[in-house]
Design a protein around this nucleic acid. Structure first.
Length: 435
RNA sequence: GCCCGGGUGGUGUAGCCCGGUUAGCAUAGGGGCCUGUCGAGCCCCAGACCCGGGUUCAAAUCCCGGCCCGGGCGCCA
């Protein structure tokens, strides 16, 4: 390990280029030596020739190991002979910043692929792989595109709290945290504070942030910590207004990915198309009939399961050629207290599914104080415990709605990744909190 | 949480059913040869059966328990 101190490199003569990176390979042929380095933009080959290159550069690179970090200054070869790299350079000076331990816990050059747990145990080395970096470059473009659309359409970015004093929201298990001398919780969703911000007079907002779920889920599509882009808007007619925002936001995100990440998509072998809007919408109770026709029986008035989600995708794929689709008018009994009812049984509650996986929940919220409190009672909850939230609805609340899209899930499905952990830099699951 | 499958050098695997040579291969590592390699090549070296118990003359292999990992379901986005 350790490194060699140096004064760094200063550009001297004209026509010289300065490069840096992690050593991907040293190929020593005796009187010629190739050092291939990689950084997050390109691969570069340094070519050292005995008799031409100063001997000190050979000495310096004698015990250069894979994944060591170097900088070099040299002459770029105009017509490079090296095939598998972007540039070829004849170095005049090399600085070794850090010599990597010769025995690596995994191979970032992927000659021998490692399994996911090994990769995650050694994530910083895994992240050096161009294929892995591509995922996060794409994810960044996706978020950029979605945020850009939201800003252009009058949405303001806000930050709602991550630590909350009362467990509530969805039915998901919460992480408890010691908050001075009492107990508090990590948010499962920025939902309730988004609504309170709307009541605070901010008519179009979004919160891009972290959510935590303490569920013991062992699946390729769950994380204990995940990020969402959560949107809320006021003065809507009905849930359709939230759906139009959601589909255009997603469309804009994917459009940006397609426009500026073609190289990364190619590297991942993904053929991505910008989805057409509006997305198809399926509604309860018709969903039961569709499932029935596909040989799946779900009891009337009940929620559907994971298999149903995949069957419904198959259905919309056939009928509309779509991968994104909404499911609307869920039974009120399977949704949280704050959703707006359409009638006694069904709610203006909308899920967005992508390739058979739930990406978001949303729809119109109940803004009428009396109705909200009666719905809390209907759910068998104590209105007192939610007073911190509901009382502000008594002082003027506009009709509003929104949704929260899981970012890792969207990335995972967009790139057909086999596991959601691939879409998180340092994923957290029930077993893993390190590194 | 329930069910199923798996744990062999640093990494990735073969062997396990049907118990018995020195546990095979690839890659990374160490040494050597080579002036255009590009998954460089060739020669040599070193390196492993998850833990505990049981069955047996003999266990990587069969049985039991534990730990860890993956998948399906549930929970959930």
């Amino acid at each position: 390990m350790g490194g060699r101190r140096s004064e760094g490199i200063h550009m001297g003569e004209e026509g010289r280029v300065k490069v840096h990176g992690w050593v991907s390979e040293v190929r020593d042929l005796g009187r010629i030596r190739f050092v291939v380095i990689r950084n997050w933009k390109e691969k570069i080959q340094l070519t050292l020739k005995r008799g031409i290159t100063p001997d000190e550069l050979f000495e310096l690179t004698d015990d250069l190991t894979q994944e060591s970090v170097i900088e070099a200054v040299g002459e770029e070869v105009a017509e490079k002979k090296a095939k598998a790299v972007d540039r070829e350079i004849v170095p005049a000076k090399i600085v070794v910043h850090s010599v990597a331990h010769p025995k690596l816990p995994m191979d970032p050059n992927w000659k021998v692929p490692a399994q996911l747990p090994t990769r995650l145990d050694n994530r910083p080395l895994d992240l050096r792989r161009p294929e892995v970096q591509a995922i996060f470059k794409i994810e960044a473009s996706l978020i950029h595109g979605m945020e850009e659309w939201l800003r252009e359409n009058g949405f303001l970015r806000v930050f709602t709290p991550a630590i909350i004093g009362a467990a509530s929201e969805s039915g998901a298990e919460v992480f408890r945290v010691q908050y001075f001398d009492r107990e508090a919780y990590l948010r499962q969703d920025p939902q309730l504070h988004r609504q309170l911000t709307i009541i605070g007079g901010f008519e179009r907002i979004y919160d891009l942030g972290v959510n935590w779920r303490a569920e013991l889920s062992h699946t390729p599509r769950h994380l204990s910590e995940f990020r969402s882009i959560a949107v809320e808007l006021a003065f809507i007619e009905n849930e359709q207004d939230t759906m139009r925002v959601e589909e255009e936001m997603i469309r804009a995100g994917i459009k940006r990915v397609v426009e500026e990440r073609s190289k990364e998509l190619e590297l991942l072998n993904v053929d991505l198309e910008v989805p057409k809007t509006p997305f198809p919408e399926l509604r309860f109770p018709k969903v039961y009939d569709i499932l029935e026709e596909m040989g799946k029986s779900v009891e009337y008035g009940e929620d559907y399961d994971t298999e149903s989600e995949r069957l419904l995708w198959q259905y919309v794929k056939q009928e509309y050629g779509a991968d994104f689709f909404f499911v609307n008018r869920f039974p009120f009994k399977v949704k949280p207290f704050y959703v707006m009812k359409e009638d006694e049984t069904w709610a203006r509650s909308v899920d967005l599914l992508y390739k058979g996986l739930e990406l978001s929940s949303g729809g119109q919220r109940e803004h009428r104080y009396d109705v909200l409190v009666s719905q809390i009672r209907e759910k068998g909850m104590n209105p007192k415990s939610l007073e911190w939230f509901t009382k502000f609805f008594a002082y003027g609340a506009p009709p509003h709605g929104g949704f929260a899209v899981g970012i890792e899930r969207l990335t995972m499905k967009m790139l057909d990744l086999p596991n959601i952990k691939e879409a998180a830099l340092f994923p957290r699951d029930p077993e893993r909190v390190l590194p």
